[in-house]
Design a protein around this nucleic acid. Structure first.
Length: 588
RNA sequence: GCACCCGUAGUCUAACGGAUAGAACGUAGGCCUCCGACGCCUUUGAUGCAGGUUCGAUUCCUGUCGGGUGCACCA
């Protein structure tokens, strides 16, 4: 099925053509003036120049051609040349019933699905997640789900920071504390224990300690670098220890991401591409792209057409070591070999704009990707505190993600616990579900590229443009549907009927916009479109709800029609929040 | 210094070049013998400034002011 706006536009285009004008002038858009009409077409004004005619005259001629349209209940030409349109109830009704039958509510599936890799999360092992990781996870997860829903083959990759000096630091500190461990015995050639010699909390304490020591003590740092070297060159005991660090840390990360309803298909990291680096670098040299500059190896990526200065992309540091760029490029090599994606989407702070520009250009120039491979960096803004500055704890430190989540859970629990009929267990579970909606909706309802203020009171409010408000609306619909079923109302085979009042028609029109909205959300990789849409939809529903007494309606056919409309509304709302990465409870 | 991004009601936020710039919070008021009032309705109030392109500019262009960010061996 086609998008609702397309169908209307088709009708309008035919009318333009019939009146002797170019068809594509008949593009219809949602009205800016809901008080005047439901949809509008500005084609008469756009065509005035080329036909040397007053817009209003063109508009009038088009109106003539639409007198007995099956789509429009009425069409009028308004000065200076707007075409104001209202939809026929029967047409709207049949479109909605078609949507009910369609699993994707009329969203067209691509002829050839793209293969897309979404690179998000980006945590470092052995370091706790903090608020800086939040946006990448939340936005990335939503974009992944949107792409998948739009019919594409999508892999989410966490892209772990699991290589390099940080690992050497941990190993060094462990050696200081427990030199007797088998892993440090170079003569040992037996099996290593399955159990890690540390817990996640110890690990989280070891890293900052080691990091601080290395900054003060050059000897310590040298030792850590040596350990890093041993690890990378494959010394058995070091590798085994690294495996322990990885498994302990990854288990913890999974737990934390799972609390955010975020999951990854690929748990790849920098370590996975380490072995690809030498060949990649060699090839870049051989092909004449990489050259030495100030001791480092770089690829020039500036272009003739640049207005701004683009520094070269560094491939190796002057000490010959790899850096961030190197592993990102090698990761591209790995992905092209193993997954052949059509498109790679990176979620990272917008301050990395220039960096990604360099890496992408370098990947293209050196032929790491095909010319048609899309590389996209979605740079997001900072989450700020109420003071407008980057979010910090009260003490001014970096806030751990789990503390942030605990805070919002507690806040939500305070509100939910008021519910008289809810037991403690249910209240706790429910508040976690609702709190997650508050956190995610608060983030996703803003354009990703903008900074936003984390305001716990506003986000957890049940009023206004918030996650809890959306959930409340869904819960309300569920409650009505349950009561309807208790009354013995039938569900099977019921159909949406023609709207009986303006509020109902408004709700119906709002529903028709789902597929067009989703297409835009996909193309723009913009979850905030979904938020804006469901907020309007929830409003339209609540308005309708107040105008219409559903359960007491005596005309059963009419009642069943409303129930069908409610079911569709609920399905769409639930689909949308799932794309945003949260869900609704049964009660709240 | 050079470059990039952003300036919309008191606050927060939206708008393929289209009519009277749309919401939210807040403010001021109204609506429960009725499906969940954690709701609904009404009220107030905004495009930093100056030019230009256009029939029409929050949107495109130029300048200017203000804020943020980035400019190779950190990620």
């Amino acid at each position: 099925m086609d998008k609702f706006l397309n169908l209307i536009s088709e009708e309008m285009k035919k009318a333009f053509e019939a009146a002797g004008y170019q068809a594509d002038l008949g593009k219809v858009t949602i009205s800016n003036r809901p008080d005047l009409c439901e949809y509008q077409c500005n084609g008469a004004m756009a065509g005035a120049k080329q036909y040397h005619k007053a817009p209003i005259m063109i508009a009038n001629e088009v109106v003539e051609k639409l007198q007995d349209s099956a789509v429009f209940a009425d069409v009028s030409a308004v000065m200076p040349g707007f075409l104001n349109l209202n939809i026929k109830e029967a047409f709207l009704q049949s479109y909605l019933n078609e949507m009910c039958q369609d699993e994707k509510f009329g969203l067209a599936m691509p002829e050839k699905p793209q293969k897309i890799i979404v690179d998000y999360g980006g945590p470092n092992v052995a370091k706790p997640l903090h608020v800086g990781h939040l946006r990448s996870a939340i936005i990335g997860e939503s974009i992944k789900r949107i792409c998948r829903y739009a019919g594409h083959e999508v892999l989410g990759d966490i892209h772990l920071g699991d290589w390099g000096l940080q690992m050497g630091l941990i190993v060094t500190e462990l050696k200081k504390r427990q030199p007797e461990l088998l892993y440090f015995d170079a003569t040992y050639d037996g099996e290593y224990p399955n159990e890690a010699p540390f817990t996640i909390s110890e690990l989280e304490e070891i890293y900052p300690t080691a990091s601080a020591k290395s900054k003060e003590d050059p000897a310590y740092k040298a030792e850590a670098m040596e350990a890093t070297g041993k690890l990378q060159s494959g010394v058995r005991g070091y590798r085994a220890l690294w495996q322990h660090i990885m498994s302990v840390s990854v288990a913890d990360l999974k737990k934390n991401y799972s609390a955010l309803n975020v999951d990854f298909d690929l748990w790849k990291g920098e370590s996975d591409v380490h072995d690809l680096i030498p060949a990649m670098v060699e090839k870049m040299k051989k092909d004449g792209f990489a050259h030495e500059s100030e001791g480092a190896l770089v690829v020039d990526v500036k272009e003739e057409t640049d207005t701004k200065e683009i520094p070269p992309c560094m491939i190796l540091k002057s000490d010959g070591a790899a850096l961030y760029n190197t592993t990102d490029l090698a990761t591209i090599v790995d992905r092209m070999e193993n997954y052949r994606p059509d498109s790679m989407i990176y979620l990272a702070d917008k301050r990395q704009d220039l960096y990604f520009e360099q890496v992408f250009r370098c990947a293209r120039k050196t032929g790491l990707v095909k010319p048609e491979t899309k590389l996209l960096h979605i740079g997001f803004g900072t989450m700020n505190g109420k003071d407008g500055k980057p979010f910090k704890t009260r003490e001014g430190g970096v806030m751990r993600l789990e503390n942030l989540i605990r805070g919002i859970n507690e806040e939500m629990h305070r509100k939910i616990a008021d519910n008289k009929s809810m037991g403690e267990e249910e209240a706790k579970e429910t508040s976690e579900v609702v709190a997650l909606s508050a956190l995610k909706y608060g983030d996703l309802s803003n354009q990703a590229s903008k900074d936003y203020i984390f305001d716990i009171d506003r986000f957890t409010s049940f009023e206004g443009d918030t996650g809890p408000y959306i959930l409340y609306t869904i819960v309300r619909i569920k409650s009505i549907l349950n009561k309807y079923k208790e009354q013995g109302g039938k569900i099977d085979g019921i159909q949406i009927r023609e709207a009986v009042n303006a509020a109902e028609k408004d709700l119906m029109l709002q529903i028709t916009g789902f597929n067009a909205m989703l297409e835009a959300a996909f193309e723009e990789a913009a979850p905030h479109r979904i938020c804006a849409y469901i907020y309007d939809l929830a409003n339209a529903f609540n308005h309708f709800y107040h105008e219409t007494k559903i359960l007491t309606e005596e005309e059963k056919e009419k009642q069943a029609g409303w129930i069908a409309l409610l079911m569709l509304t609920k399905r769409i709302l639930e689909t949308c929040i799932d794309l945003l990465g949260f869900s609704a409870p049964e009660r709240m």
